[in-house]
């Protein structure tokens, strides 16, 4: 019944169900439905799970949109969105002008340019392995990898800034927290930042898991995996 309400069953399914329970021979249409159902069952569970998580995350984003989560259109009018970036209020404040007209302001403006480049699908270097990556990788998964927390890394006005978040699906990044790089020195600092990001995730998305891909191309487009060469 629930499945029928969700639009999963059609008249063909009902015909097939009747035929199967009454012992009648299946019509050609009913056989086709059985075939489709078999195909459905054979679809890898992994793919269905990913779609489900992304849909759940999207629903939560819609729920929080304009209140605690925000979409970021590119700073220049003539440019469109290719990768989707959703930010928390904390990140929105960091990347929204006016900024102070000194070095710190320039650092924030540069960081905004980095996020705009992300949205516009500019090439970005990626690393999945926290402890064996070039120091200036563009986006990297943070230790422990099982937490699926990633940081987008800005190196302008060294030492730059780090923005923590998680993928909600293919080309969908949800940026939740940030800090200046010089404030994240020790392992404890990193752990603190990771935990803070996870807490914000939980407050917004509850028990919904963060997106987990098996390969980098399940996370995003236009990337350079430096470990591949």
């Amino acid at each position: 019944m629930v499945a029928a309400q969700n639009g999963m069953f059609t008249l063909g399914h009902i015909t097939m169900f009747y035929a199967m329970t009454s012992g009648a021979k299946l019509s050609r249409e009913a056989s086709a439905v059985v075939s489709r159902l078999s195909t459905f069952r054979l679809t890898p569970k992994r793919l269905l799970t990913y779609m489900s998580i992304t849909d759940q995350i999207r629903a939560k984003v819609r729920e929080h949109q304009g209140v605690s989560l925000f979409e970021i259109p590119p700073s220049l009018e003539g440019e469109g969105i290719i990768r989707e970036l959703i930010v928390s209020e904390e990140v929105l404040r960091a990347i929204s002008p006016p900024w102070p007209p000194h070095r710190e302001g320039e650092r924030h403006a540069s960081f905004r340019a980095l996020l705009d480049a992300f949205v516009q699908n500019e090439e970005i270097s990626v690393s999945e392995t926290p402890f064996s990556k070039p120091w200036d990788t563009g986006i990297a998964r943070v230790h422990p990898v099982s937490d699926e927390i990633w940081d987008i890394r800005s190196f302008e006005m060294p030492p730059g800034m780090r923005c923590f978040g998680a993928f909600g699906g293919y080309n969908l990044f949800i940026a939740l927290t940030w800090n200046y790089r010089e404030a994240i020195e020790t392992a404890e600092d990193w752990e603190y930042e990771t935990n803070r990001c996870k807490e914000v995730w939980s407050s917004l998305f509850g028990q919904i898991e963060r997106f987990r891909g098996e390969q980098l191309d399940e996370y995003l487009s236009s990337f350079l995996d430096l470990s591949a060469n």
């Binding site: 979409e71 002008p97 403006a109 340019a113 302008e156």
Partner: peptide, 29 residues
């Protein structure tokens, strides 16, 4: 809070100094 910040970069006019943050944004871009 609005996310419509499309106009935060403005075109240079007359003798007004372009904000350093605008230069910074464009250099990174």
């Amino acid at each position: 809070m609005s996310t419509s910040q499309a106009s935060w970069i403005s075109a240079p006019t007359e003798a007004d100094r372009v904000p350093k943050t605008t230069f910074s944004y464009l250099r990174t871009r």
